[in-house]
Nucleic acid binder design. Structure first.
Lengths: 330, 330
DNA sequence: CTGAAAGCGCTAACAT
DNA sequence: ATGTTAGCGCTTTCAG
């Protein structure tokens, strides 16, 4: 630990007691102007910053909020973090992104242990099946789910309506005259995947179309390669789809690539829709038609709700609006 | 703070002193088998995990390593993190990604303050001009630079040879017969940008070509839009380039998009090369010719060096090999 | 308005 | 092999 000044050094430098230093630092109790000045001067002179470990041990609160992330490299999550961090910072809390290793199989146990006492609360973006160990570690700590949520869960959540969003996407495809619509999804243990699939099937049924299981392709993960693979699989069925709805832009772009490799053109031979509206959706050719989520707002709302929880309130769950972004792929 | 059992509760439950509990937990001193069992049983029964704040306050080391990241959403960094985390975890350290907000302008001051005492060391990926405040906060703490580094700096570093890599890329373009080669870069305050530019100019000079300043386009940031914009700028000069080397794949893909929008085709009218070899480079069409960095290895090496530093050693700087990945864009 | 002192949970001497 | 105790740096009664 670098030779940092302790509160005691500051007290000595200012000729006061450590209690007084603490008071001016935290504004807990009135301090005479003269004393305050001396302390502030000493703080500056010694470049003193309170040791968060001492503080936390004493107060029992760390003012750190954990953000549990399934994937580090996904711009969708990055944007949510940005939205949340803006809000928490204003309230004097630090947002710590963590848990991203879960996606690589090995849960970081040391961090998991830390989670229990390191943070005052958590914003969870983790996919449902992966979040259990964290939930246990958090042990009743203020917790809000963001994006991935179980409606029946008593925890506050903020999300888009995955089911409705998927319905809207598929309805758009239906309106365009497509009848054999495929569905590319990730691991179905993920709630959002199941909810979007529900929406997909509901839209089909409403149009009098029976969902065909051979048109539903669940890939292991959310990569371009998986999407490409899925396209190949879908092409192999006896009556291939004339449109496809994928649960993520990554999968959708991978699928387009896959269709192309098989000599099909998008959207002429097969229309493709994605989900998320990440930056590449607008750059890739054809431009990806997709459903956009209000990422920044999702993060900000989650942070506000967590702050409310910390404040003893019981924030109501929130559903934020999604919207279709129409480009060339469908 | 959720009602967590303290070490004292465990001691009571097991009928021993807290010192003994600490000893079995940390294996610091021999403990009789019988006692150990009782303590372990108590730990399990109470679901006890040591409070890291207490531990840190006492030992002066947190066993947390900070990873300073310029950008959260960039798969390049995500991969480096993965490489580093694997190594640190094995050594019993937790890797905490942080600092990503710097790129959004506002440096998270609370985290910055934490940085000073929260971590035992740091792996820095931050761009040089942005890393200063962190460096001050770290105040002499073990520190290794990864990717971005100043050769003259006394801190250990691991990186590719940005200058040489750029030379290789430009030489490839030269070999293909291109003579008017443009350069798209980000903010030139970033060291890697300056080093790659040096390589670009060196390769040109070696071929007897005087670098033309109108063919060098420095964009503000590293986005698709910036690349696209740069392409337009380059097209506006009296004698536009017949090839372009961009300092990142993102910029390169943006540039391809920009050239296309202006009616040019890649690689026929203008060849484009990138840097990094991120996943989309292989999916985008035309496939992006680029220079690949060993991302996982960079992270792993950085972690190893930091661990060595923590261990009192003086690890030597390391330069890892890059390689050209040839696809269709150039 | 300010100081003395207790205590947060833990580790590491120092006893025994 | 195990217990006692003194801190680690800070906040917060409790006195004054």
């Amino acid at each position: 630990m670098a030779s940092k000044a302790s509160i005691e050094a500051v007290a000595r430098e200012a000729g006061v007691s450590i209690a007084t230093v603490s008071r001016v630092l935290n504004g807990t109790k009135p301090v005479s102007a003269a004393t305050r000045q001396r302390v502030e001067a000493a703080v500056k002179a010694l470049d003193y910053r309170a040791n968060p470990f001492g503080r936390t041990l004493s107060t029992g609160e760390s003012r750190i909020l954990l953000m549990l992330m399934p994937d580090f490299a996904n711009p969708f999550y990055a944007e949510i973090v940005r939205g949340a961090a803006t809000v928490t910072r204003r309230a004097g809390y630090t947002l710590l992104p963590a848990g991203w290793e879960a996606s690589s199989g090995t849960l970081d146990t040391s961090l998991q242990m830390l989670a229990g006492s390191l943070s005052d609360g958590v914003i969870n973006l983790m996919h449902m099946p992966d979040q259990k160990p964290w939930e246990e570690a958090a042990n009743g700590k203020p917790w809000v789910n963001c994006s991935e949520f179980l409606p029946s869960d008593k925890k506050p959540y903020v999300s888009v309506d995955h089911r409705q969003a998927a319905m809207d996407a598929v309805q758009y495809l239906l309106n365009k005259g497509h009848r054999r619509i495929g569905f590319i999804t990730t691991d179905e243990r993920f709630l959002y995947a199941r909810q979007r699939r529900e929406g997909y099937e509901a839209a089909l049924k409403r149009a009098g179309i029976a969902p065909a299981s051979e048109l539903i392709c669940a890939t292991g993960d959310n990569s371009y390669g998986a999407g490409s693979q899925a396209a190949a699989t879908l092409l192999a069925v006896v009556a291939p789809p004339d449109a496809v709805f994928a649960v993520s832009d990554t999968l959708a772009i991978g699928a387009i690539k896959g269709f192309r490799k098989a000599g099909r053109s998008v959207p002429q031979d097969v229309a493709v829709m994605g989900f998320d509206n990440v930056p590449i959706a607008d750059i890739f050719e054809p431009g990806l038609t997709t459903v956009a989520q209000p990422m920044t707002e999702l993060g900000a709302a989650a942070a506000e709700m967590l702050l409310a929880l910390l404040n003893g309130e019981r924030p109501a769950p929130r559903i934020l609006p999604h919207r279709l972004v129409l480009r060339q792929s469908a």
